[in-house]
């Protein structure tokens, strides 16, 4: 199941003290699919990475009853490992490893007893995403962009994290591949009840979200709920 998000008094500043992002209040119920749009440099990604605990910030970012900003670096890492999956515009796969190894990457730093379970789960995700069988043993360099991003999704969801953060997941894909990926992403998150927050310019992706936030100059200037 997903995790609900409660933000209050969040502000992110640059090292020189310039305010990059300010979000006084924001709530998201568990299992929501939320799109974030806005011009380049508006602060979309800053918000996304703040939600992952990767940005130094003030205020509170509460996932369930856990305030991310109250945790130290090690605790945040552990929180990410267990609760947050991430996918990126250019996939960020290890090109020397095969699809299966990439999907199960986080097994390498998990306790030994959890590794087999995670590998099985990663394989299951790949199967679901149409990358099972011999594709799993193929080096990711030989895969298409769409396939690679699906490997990244399998990696992000292998640990059954309740939150999935996506940074421009379709920006490197052609239209057909992007459409297929959006389908997979939405189906997977909806069926597992995962909370999905996706930064994107892709209107097809945005249109499939429950809610869309628009960011301009570091502030949320629009908050539309999709009419369903």
């Amino acid at each position: 199941m997903g995790l609900p998000l409660t933000i209050s008094g969040l502000s992110v500043s640059s090292k020189r003290g310039r305010l990059l992002l300010s979000v006084p209040d924001l709530d998201m119920p568990a299992g929501s699919l939320v799109g974030i749009e806005g011009a380049s440099g508006a602060g979309k990604s800053t918000l996304l990475y703040a939600l992952a605990g990767l940005q130094e910030a003030k205020g509170s970012i509460r996932w369930g009853d856990q305030d991310l900003l109250a945790l130290n670096a090690g605790e945040r890492a552990r929180f990410r490992a267990n609760r947050i999956g991430m996918i990126f515009q250019d996939f960020l796969l290890f090109e020397e490893l095969d699809a299966g190894e990439n999907a199960a990457l986080t097994a390498l730093f998990r306790p030994r007893r959890e590794r087999a379970t995670l590998r099985a789960k990663a394989a299951e995700r790949l199967d679901f995403l149409g990358l099972g069988g011999e594709t799993r043993d193929r080096n990711v360099v030989s895969l298409s962009g769409g396939e690679r991003q699906r490997v990244a999704i399998a990696r992000a969801m292998a640990a059954e994290a309740p939150v999935l953060l996506a940074d421009e997941p379709t920006a490197s894909l052609d239209r057909a591949a992007a459409d297929r990926l959006i389908e997979d992403l939405v189906n997977l998150t909806r069926s597992s009840g995962t909370t999905l927050i996706a930064v994107s310019h892709d209107q097809t992706l945005i249109s499939r979200m429950d809610r869309v936030l628009t960011i301009r100059d570091g502030a949320i200037v629009a908050d539309r709920k999709a009419a369903r």
């Binding site: 992952a52 990767l54 670096a73 090690g74 890492a77 552990r78 929180f79 990410r80 490992a81 267990n82 947050i84 991430m86 990126f88 960020l92 290890f94 990457l105 986080t106 390498l108 730093f109 990696r155």
Partner: peptide, 12 residues
Amino acid sequence: QIALLRALGAPA
């Protein structure tokens, strides 16, 4: 790759 590992929650 290092940044990715840390984003995925790899311990320091």
